[in-house]
Design a protein around this nucleic acid. Structure first.
Ligand code: DCP
Ligand code: MG
Ligand code: MN
Length: 887
DNA sequence: CCGTTAGCCA
DNA sequence: ACGTGGCTAACGGG
């Protein structure tokens, strides 16, 4: 095999990216999501230029891997004393590797060696294969590699101009041959590597000695004969020089596990490359690249609106048509309210731009059943799949598995977006226009109009495959495929089942509570009126301000946008100052009306099966938590006695004799995650010893024994602890605990002193987030925080606090979701359905004969959902009601 | 109808 | 301006 016309370009990725990083201002290079791109831009720009100019047949980019090199082992101070690499740098290296790979260029790394050693090895391989070799490196040590076959391309300043260092050029610049360059560097020393040489010896002197004595060993042998002060210095520093000489030799025999032919410049992955450039918002660079790399388009052009083929068919025909397709996209006019779902127009697409539509309302149950079985053999792509499958289930169409959900995928990519409507996603991500056609009357066509429904859902289904492909690719690029496929998608049917099951309530109990709370509210209102001598709308903060600050002349409270606050905290403070009875009655009125409103709200949502069916939102909370609405069952009162009476009306299925509710709540969940992520030794040990941190901190704060911390105190301390780790200020703490700012400051200092690594970890999260543009949970779920780079202080501070919280709250959400999947799986063949999730708690309706088994399942599966450096502990209780179970 | 205020939960 | 993440209800200006 002959390689006579071949040329090999070898690049030191690390040193050049590092130069680019310092040459280009960070502030000018960041994307809208906050990803810093200066090193990427500078490096890729330089790479494109050199590829254009040199037109190599073979290319490789080498990166350092790991810190431990043989050099560091010999000399622990190697490269010590360097300014710490800014956190914005390393994440860019990973992206550079991705781009380089997508350009068809081999990325080479080798554990324990520096990029330079890999370059030296490949240069030797290239020479032996008969190729012309060029080595681009920002490290002068590479000069030793120059031969008549190997040229070093050394960037002058910044990253734009390259010096071509041939043997002659090295000779001219340093007065020594490339072979002697090592000796020269050893004598002079290399500050960047923390390798001091002989003091007072520069390039000139070193070159003179090397020329006189042939090479460095020659110089050292003849050290005695060198006169003057410098000669003396040389003799004093022989050990250092010898060490430098050993360390600056580049190894050309590293086992890289590749051959010369593996370095051939390949076709790469133009689609991936475009997507990376889009992601990094490199436009001009994309065009420059296109000149030498024609396949890589610069923009993902919106697809031209093409005709969609929509065909109305009956179920039999549909079954025939879908039979030879694996993947199907479906959409329908699904609705679900108060425990009842409906879907009439169902569209099925097997190829982009095409859909068949069936009318489920006209189909017989038998056909629908056949369709359900048939769909079980396909991978199904949906949008907002939970709503869809619930509605279909109501129509007798059962779907057990979801292979893709465009809303969920879009959520993972941008978890704090305002909405994930298919029309918006399709337009943004795939350039597909799904805007509704207007009817004659000029109004948007309604789904009732069945022709319009056919078109609408036909088009949506026809777009789904394409939209999903783009989203799934982006999810994969962000390393979130596991979160997507192993957590979010399988969770959909689990949540759907929980919602459809609902939780039983004691309706009579609810009505009684309303009566009671209404009477209390009326009494308090009357007393409040009596205290000021007239009636006023106690629910109107505006009218209250008139009473408090104009009529009663009370001191002004904290400002709000529209006036002065009348919140409970402010009213309590005013009461301390004025002791005016109106305030007490107003506070009591607020309490009673709030409780009453809560119960009224719940009663309104009781379905005709006597149960409440909440809806879990899987794409709302930016951290990865679920939320619950219509009604929200994640904020049922618990902190006051009256509140717990509301919890008491959530009961086990009354149709099951002696049924029991079981609640399982993770113990101190986010504190455990904090211990794990921060690695704080004291915190980890505390959890391993089974300590209760909230009680421990409570005992310190209230100055009592751990066992004397009652549940009310513990609950206060819980709020304080989480407040502190998530960015509560001394001022905020002083208000929360109604103490002085100084006292609050003292508590804060004590807290963070006790858990030292926590503070460091929190600082680190923010720094990492600033560099990466996002935070990450233990499962790799991301939250992008571009506001970390905002020049508006308030926005920036808010983003910093969100960055503190997101990895921890989000990791807790990951763990709970995994636990739910495992619990649901093991409850599958039992008769004890999971009903609710309250962030770190699940509620199960247990059939009496299954109680021990369910307890064991929940404890095991929640406890083993994810292995942290601390144990996961779960508090489990049972009882006739939610309240009783939690006791 | 929507922004604001208040208050409930994790 | 000074824990984060949610949802609901009432008020009142438009
Ligand atoms: N004021 C609060 C209360 C809770 N949480 C978060 C952190 C908690 O870990 C999680 C679950 O709330 P819990 O009330 O269950 O609190 P813990 O799990 O920490 O404590 P416990 O052992 O009482 O369950 O919600 C929070 O951020 N701020
Ligand atoms: Mg809890
Ligand atoms: Mn808990």
């Amino acid at each position: 095999m002959s390689h006579s016309n071949e040329s090999l370009l070898l690049i030191d990725g690390h040193s050049l990216a590092y130069r680019a990083f310092h040459a280009l201002p960070v502030e000018n290079f960041s994307t809208s999501t906050g990803q810093t791109t200066n090193a990427i831009y500078g490096f890729i720009s330089m790479l494109i230029n050199v590829l254009r100019d040199e037109e190599p047949s073979h290319v490789a980019v080498a990166f350092d891997l790991g810190r431990q090199t043989f050099r560091l082992e010999e000399y622990p101070e190697y490269k010590a004393g360097r300014a710490k690499t800014p956190p914005e740098f390393h994440p860019q290296i990973d992206l550079i590797k991705d781009i380089v790979t997508a350009m068809g260029i081999r990325v080479v790394t080798k554990e324990g060696f520096e990029a330079d050693d890999a370059l030296a090895t490949m240069a030797r391989m290239g020479t032996e294969a008969g190729a012309v070799v060029e080595v681009m490196s920002g490290d002068k040590d590479s000069f030793q590699l120059a031969t008549d076959k190997v040229t070093i391309l050394y960037p002058k300043r910044g990253v734009s101009d390259l010096n071509r260092m041939t043997p002659a050029a090295v000779e001219e610049k340093y007065g020594v041959s490339p072979a002697n360059y090592r000796g020269l560097a050893a004598l002079v020393g290399e500050k960047a590597d923390n390798l001091p040489g002989v003091p007072g010896v520069g390039d000139k002197t070193a070159a003179k000695w090397l020329t006189a004595h042939g090479d460095l060993p020659g110089v050292l042998e003849n050290a005695e004969s060198i006169g003057g002060k410098v000669g003396e210095k040389l003799r004093d520093h022989i050990t250092e020089v010898e060490r430098n000489y050993r360390l600056n030799r580049l190894l050309d025999d590293v086992d890289l596990g590749l051959e010369f032919d593996d370095l051939a410049w390949g076709a790469g992955d133009p689609t991936e490359l475009s997507s990376l450039f889009d992601q990094l918002e490199f436009q001009a660079l994309g065009k420059r690249l296109a000149a030498i790399f024609p396949e890589a388009g610069t923009e993902s052009e919106p697809a031209p609106t093409r005709e969609t083929s929509i065909e109305t068919v009956d179920i039999d025909a549909l079954l025939t048509k879908i039979s030879d397709h694996d993947v199907l996209a479906l959409d329908s006019d699904a609705t679900f309210e108060l425990g009842h779902g409906q879907a009439r127009t169902l569209a099925v697409s097997a190829e982009p731009g095409q859909a068949w539509v069936v009318d489920l309302a006209e189909a017989g149950q038998k056909d629908i059943g056949k369709l359900g079985s048939a769909l079980g053999g396909h991978s199904l792509i949906l949008h907002s799949s939970k709503l869809q499958i619930k509605a279909w289930e109501s129509m007798g169409l059962s779907v057990a598995d979801i292979a893709g959900d465009t809303a969920l995928a879009a959520y993972l990519l941008v978890p704090d977006a305002r909405s994930y409507e298919l029309g918006q996603i399709a337009a943004d991500r795939a350039g597909i226009d799904l805007s509704e056609p207007e009817s004659d009357s000029g109004q948007l066509a309604l789904d009732l109009d069945s022709d319009a429904a056919v078109t609408t859902h036909g088009q949506r289904a026809a777009a789904l495959l394409e939209v999903h492909e783009v989203l799934a690719k982006a999810v994969d690029d962000a390393n979130m495929t596991q979160v997507y496929r192993d957590i979010e998608l399988p969770l959909v049917p689990v949540l759907a089942r929980m919602e459809s099951t609902g939780i039983a309530v004691d309706e009579a109990g609810l009505t009684n509570l309303i009566d009671e709370f209404t009477k209390q509210a009326e009494a308090s209102a009357q007393e409040a009126y009596d205290a000021i001598g007239h009636e006023v709308n106690l629910g109107s903060p505006k009218q209250l301000q008139t009473v408090l600050f104009d009529e009663l002349d009370m001191p002004k409270t904290k400002r709000t946008k529209t006036g002065y606050t009348t919140d409970a905290e402010a009213l309590a403070e005013l009461f301390v100052k004025t002791e005016h009875p109106f305030l007490q009655h107003l506070l009591a009125y607020r309490d009673s009306t709030k409780l009453k409103q809560t119960v009224v709200g719940l009663l309104k949502t009781v379905a005709d099966d006597g149960r409440i069916h909440t809806t879990y939102q899987q794409t709302v909370a930016a951290t990865g938590r679920l939320s619950s609405l219509d009604p929200n069952l994640q904020n049922i009162p618990v902190r006051t006695e009256s509140g717990r009476r509301i919890r008491d009306i959530f009961i086990a299925d009354p149709e099951v004799t002696d049924g029991t509710l079981l609640t399982a709540d993770y113990s101190q969940i986010e504190m455990r995650i904090m211990a794990h992520l921060s690695g704080d030794a004291a915190l980890i040990q505390a959890f391993k010893d089974g300590e209760d941190l909230h009680s421990y901190v409570g005992s310190k704060v209230f100055g009592v024994g751990i066992d004397e911390v009652d549940s009310e105190m513990r609950s206060k301390v819980k709020a304080m602890s989480y407040g502190l780790v998530y960015g509560l200020s001394a001022y905020g703490l002083s208000r929360q605990l109604a103490i002085g700012v100084d006292e609050a400051k003292g508590l804060m200092d004590q807290y963070f002193e006790r858990f030292g690594a926590v503070k460091d970890y929190l600082d680190d999260i923010v720094e990492q987030a600033r560099a990466n543009g996002f935070t990450e949970t233990i499962m790799g779920r991301r939250r992008y925080l571009p506001a970390l780079h905002s020049d508006r202080r308030q926005l920036r501070d808010m983003a910093e606090r969100a960055a503190l919280n997101a990895p921890i709250q989000g990791s807790a959400a990951d763990i709970m979701k995994i636990a739910m999947l495992k619990v649901a799986d093991r409850l599958k063949d039992l008769h004890s359905p999971m009903l609710l999730q309250v962030h770190d708690e699940i509620i199960v309706d247990v059939r009496p004969d299954e109680i021990n088994e369910v307890k064991a399942i929940v404890t095991e599966e929640m406890g083993s959902a994810f292995e942290l450096d601390v144990p996961l502990d779960v508090n489990v209780g049972t009882g006739r009601s939610w309240h009783a179970a939690a006791h």
